[in-house]
């Protein structure tokens, strides 16, 4: 019995990360990368993959060592763990996907400062066992990836008239959308849309507005 209960809670952990506690659309954390790297689907996807990997590994590591960390130095310790995994990601991407890394290497290094990763480590992984921490990291990472791809989809389609670098229409329908201004427009409107969907169909009470 307890086994099946656990399974349900794992699925709900993933669902929470993607929908009701989506890092960008619902919790409103890590909005800088949501604007900065989403000028195309490809960049958004790669960034999302990098964050997904870092988030899962950080959650697992923090969960493993949670009993050895003194509460007074826990934030610096988490930062060390995050920095380690970001360095791993950074160097691997530099080695294997060089053309993409040339475009967004700076932002990969910046993952170390993303609020969502530290917040999941502090709020969840430091109090939970390894398996739930893994699923929480998976859910939040996928939620982040999902948000970046959606924002990138609209910005690239409207701003460049292409998707994943392949042209769809030969004009630039709304040039402003690939400029930083367009990023704010896209994030704001999509956030509103997700709140509306949540309130209309799932009975939610609107965004929690970065209170976490």
């Amino acid at each position: 019995m307890s086994n099946s209960e656990n399974k349900i809670s794992y699925i709900s952990l993933i669902k929470n990360g993607i929908f009701s506690e989506n890092p960008i659309f619902r919790v409103a954390l890590s909005l800088c990368p949501a604007v900065a790297v989403t000028s195309g689907v490809k960049n958004g996807f790669m960034m999302g993959i990098a964050v997904l990997f870092v988030q899962i590994m950080v959650n697992i590591t923090v969960s493993v060592v949670r009993k050895f960390i003194h509460p007074k130095v826990r934030i610096p310790s988490y930062m060390f763990i995050i920095a380690t995994w970001v360095t791993v990601t950074d160097l691997s991407m530099a080695a294997f996907v060089r053309d993409i890394y040339a475009q967004m290497g700076l932002y990969i290094k910046l993952i170390v400062a993303f609020a969502i990763i530290l917040s999941r480590a502090e709020l969840f992984a430091s109090k939970q066992k390894i398996t739930p921490s893994f699923f929480d990291g998976l859910g939040n990472g996928i939620g982040f990836l999902f948000a970046l791809v959606i924002i990138g989809f609209f910005r690239e389609l409207l701003g460049k008239g292409s998707l994943w670098g392949y042209p769809i229409v030969d004009t630039k329908p709304l040039l402003i959308m690939i400029l930083p201004t367009g990023g704010f427009f896209a994030v704001g409107i999509l956030m509103g849309l997700f709140n509306w969907i949540d309130m209309k169909f799932f009975g939610g009470g609107g965004a929690s507005g970065g209170g976490h």
Partner: peptide, 8 residues
């Protein structure tokens, strides 16, 4: 302003 930036 939106139009000027979008359709220069």
């Amino acid at each position: 302003a939106f139009l000027l930036i979008s359709f220069p």
